[in-house]
Simulated scan of single mutants.
Amino acid sequence: MIPLLLPPNPVQHFYLGGDRIAALRGIVPETDRQPEEWLAATVSRFGDPVTGLAVTESGEVLRDLVSADSAGWIGADRGRDAGDVGILVKLLDARQRLPVHVHPDRGFAARHLDCPYGKTEAWYVLDTEADCAVHVGWNTDLDADELARRRDAQDSEWMLAHMNRVVVREGMGVLVPAGTAHAIDGGIFVAEVQEPTDFSILLEWSVTTSTRDESHLDLGFDTVMSAVSHARLAPEALASLISDAGTTPAGSTFRSLLPAAADAYFRLSDAAVRGGASSVRAAGFAVVLVTDGAGELVGAGGRVPASRGEVFAVPHAFGDWRLEGAASVLVAEPGAGWPQSLTRGGVA
């Protein structure tokens, strides 16, 4: 098996953006609310069985291909969900501030959503305008009733004032654990890696085209607010969620772009070659985005040309592989030890 080149898969959403995705992927946006692309996705939008799923040039659904040969694609028989690849990767190009929202953890998802995954996620900054920031966690302990009142009043100013504001720069990686309130300023373009779900609890919907009824996973706020942390995220804890590894130029050896705590959920790395070869990535499912130049993905299955803006789903059966030529790539992979780690109960 060889890496599968996938056509663009833009997703319409409730917020503005998408021009930088279009420029990278060589497409013309259909609307000004096309701010996401789901890369090699085998999961769909919450409540929608189709939107988000990756489809090949010939019209085959990637999820179906993985289900038909899970050993070839991920190196194991997944049993309950043969189409599961352990990760969801997106390009997110916000031209307005995203709402304050939260994702549930695995325990909540297992109890209420019949899913073994929550939605811990991470952002890798590809581009940003000056003084743009992400908002991660509360800067003080919050009273649950007060937060509920502010949510119902859609008091955006109050929520943002009680959050940690982190000015970002290109190459910064930020881990957002499940349960942590967060938002992203308009002007930031990120690659987002996350657990393979679309579970979001909106504390702030009035800045989007979404509604209150679409903001609580169809469970009601009385239930979903138990998934929301009300505790202060202290400066030292916030610092541990940030990596500056990608703010220096990439080399031929693949390097991790995220804090170590992300490894249990997903991994994101990069490499750049300039007429040579990269270090080797071990066999396993991966999503590869070529961010610059042109080269080849070289593995036991053969050699596959790869150029800027292209996206590949790399199967386990491609074997250990490397990048050759003059190109730069981002590589997203499931967490360390997956899928066995998930069937053992995974991460709390």
Rank of each mutant, 00 (worst) to 15 (best):
S229W: 03
D292G: 14
R322D: 00
S156D: 10
Y124A: 09
Q96V: 13
T120V: 08
Q96D: 14
R255K: 09
N164Q: 11
A326C: 08
Q154C: 12
R95C: 11
P29M: 09
E333L: 08
A227V: 01
L238E: 00
S279L: 08
T120R: 07
R150V: 03
R63L: 06
R165H: 04
R274D: 05
T343P: 00
G335K: 07
L92T: 04
L88G: 06
L330K: 08
E146M: 13
P10G: 02
V314D: 06
D114N: 13
F266H: 06
R45K: 14
D64S: 06
P29D: 10
T223H: 00
D127I: 02
W321Y: 15
S240A: 15
S206M: 04
C132S: 14
G337Y: 06
V228P: 01
L233Q: 01
G26L: 09
A110I: 01
A245I: 12
A264C: 10
E192F: 00
E296D: 10
D143F: 14
A262W: 02
D218M: 01
A133T: 07
M1P: 11
T343E: 05
A234D: 11
E146D: 09
A294T: 14
S279V: 11
A283L: 07
V43N: 07
A153L: 13
A260S: 13
V66M: 00
A237S: 12
H13M: 05
P196M: 07
V314R: 06
C115H: 12
G75I: 05
H216N: 13
K119F: 04
R212Q: 12
S269I: 03
S240D: 14
D77L: 04
A227M: 10
A234V: 09
P99H: 05
R303Q: 11
H230Q: 01
A261G: 12
A271M: 02
V11S: 04
P177D: 00
H103L: 01
E146Q: 13
S210V: 11
P99K: 06
N9V: 07
L217V: 13
E57K: 08
E157N: 07
A68Y: 02
A286H: 06
V190M: 01
V331P: 02
